[in-house]
Design a protein around this nucleic acid. Structure first.
Length: 174
DNA sequence: AGTTCGGACCGTT
DNA sequence: AACGGTCCGAACT
């Protein structure tokens, strides 16, 4: 059961690391994307409700602080309804990993009482609609190895580094 | 010590 | 039916 929740309002977030883009539904923040080479698309449809503007202020501040390796502070309501039950469970668990700490995919799977679903956990992390704020970058492979990252490993290294976390680089071969 | 291989396992498309 | 942001042990170097 998956639903397609298209963001109704799309607003930019300019940071020192580039322009992020936040998408909102009527229920809250439902999408956050990393800066892309081609930026600027203001795909806003119609006037933006003040309630959404308020959410966006929270999102902007949270992203800026997260990029600086600081606590995000208050977050806007998150609309995770686009995900399956399993994905939403993983995403909620992501929110419990505090700043500067990490968990492995296997540990997350165990926490969800599905110890053998560690691979599926990886997939769910990759489908995280709100990266950075839901800290999927704090999920490493076993033994402290870096693991993967949908947004590009460069971002994972950058985010972890700014939080003071150390990791083990993957072996050069592949 | 480190590295490669191969199977096992789960949710998603 | 096939693929992953995996893991573990075994068999190598």
């Amino acid at each position: 059961m998956k639903r397609q929740v298209q963001p109704q309002f799309v607003l930019p977030i300019s940071t020192a690391d580039g322009e992020f883009v936040a998408g909102y539904s009527h229920a809250g923040l439902c999408h956050l994307s990393f800066p892309t080479p081609q930026t600027g698309r203001a795909a806003g449809s119609g006037p933006v409700p003040s309630r959404v503007l308020g959410w966006h202020r929270l999102t902007s501040a949270a992203v800026t602080r997260a990029l600086a390796g600081q606590p995000t502070g208050k977050l806007p309501p998150l609309d995770l309804s686009a995900g399956t039950e399993f994905q939403q469970a993983v995403w909620r668990a992501l929110g419990e990993i505090t700043l500067g700490n990490t968990k492995s995919y296997g540990e997350l799977a165990r926490r969800l009482r599905k110890p053998k679903a560690l691979r599926a956990v990886g997939g769910a992390c990759g489908a995280n609609p709100v990266p950075v704020l839901l800290p999927c970058h704090r999920v490493l492979a076993a033994n402290g190895r870096l693991g993967g990252f949908s947004g590009g490993l460069g971002w994972k290294r950058r985010l972890l580094g700014r939080e003071g976390v150390s990791w083990v680089e993957p072996s050069p071969a592949r």
